[in-house]
Computed example of a mutant assay.
Amino acid sequence: MRRLETGNDLPQLGQYVRIRQGRDAGSIALIVAFENERFILLADGHKRPSDAPKKKNINHVEILSAVSPEVQRSLKETGRVTNGKLRHAIATLDQAIQKRVEEGSAIGNGKRGCY
């Protein structure tokens, strides 16, 4: 998993997003295709498999700074990605977030108070 450089606001294939609107609000997915400048296609390997991605308005998702290089490479080389690879990428992100929370670096470095 790698992070994007600051200043690059354009979404990329294989980039993680958090869904903000709709029945899947709060869940994590990956960008598997672009419909146009307004819509992206998302898949997570569970509820939304790669062969039936969810069309989502780009304004209804929070684009995260991390990109899955395995998913990105697969999409660029073959135009497809397996559901197992999507599930693995999301599990890897979940583990990284959990590790940061345990270390206290994800939320205010373990300090209490308003930020």
Rank of each mutant, 00 (worst) to 15 (best):
M1V: 12
M1Q: 12
L4G: 08
L4D: 14
L4M: 14
L4T: 10
T6Q: 11
T6D: 10
G7H: 04
G7S: 05
N8G: 06
N8M: 14
D9V: 06
D9N: 09
Q12H: 04
Q12P: 01
Q12S: 05
G14R: 06
Q15V: 15
Q15D: 12
Q15S: 06
Y16F: 15
V17A: 03
R18K: 15
I19R: 15
I19Q: 13
G22C: 11
R23D: 14
D24M: 12
D24W: 09
A25V: 06
A25R: 10
A25M: 07
G26S: 13
S27W: 02
S27G: 09
A29Y: 05
A29H: 03
A29P: 05
I31E: 07
V32S: 09
A33S: 12
A33F: 08
A33L: 10
F34Y: 06
E37T: 05
E37R: 12
E37F: 06
L41M: 08
D44K: 08
D44R: 04
G45K: 02
H46Q: 05
H46F: 03
K47E: 10
R48K: 02
R48P: 01
P49C: 14
P49R: 13
S50C: 01
S50H: 01
A52K: 14
P53D: 02
K55C: 09
K55H: 03
K56G: 02
K56Q: 03
K56W: 03
N57H: 07
I58W: 00
I58N: 01
H60R: 01
V61F: 00
V61P: 08
E62D: 13
E62P: 05
I63D: 11
L64Q: 12
L64P: 11
L64E: 14
S65I: 04
S65K: 13
A66C: 09
V67F: 08
V67I: 15
S68C: 15
S68M: 09
P69Q: 11
P69W: 07
P69H: 11
V71H: 01
V71I: 03
V71G: 03
Q72G: 07
Q72A: 11
R73A: 07
E77V: 09
T78Y: 04
G79A: 10
G79K: 10
R80T: 15
V81R: 09
V81G: 13
G84L: 15
G84R: 13
K85M: 08
L86V: 11
A89Q: 10
I90L: 02
A91R: 10
A91V: 02
T92P: 03
T92L: 06
T92S: 08
L93F: 00
L93T: 03
L93W: 00
L93H: 02
D94V: 00
Q95V: 15
I97V: 14
I97K: 05
K99H: 11
K99M: 15
K99C: 11
R100L: 07
R100K: 00
E103V: 05
E103P: 08
G104Q: 07
G104V: 14
S105Y: 05
S105G: 07
A106I: 02
A106T: 01
I107T: 03
G108N: 10
G110M: 00
G110F: 00
K111V: 05
R112I: 10
G113N: 06
G113K: 06
C114P: 14
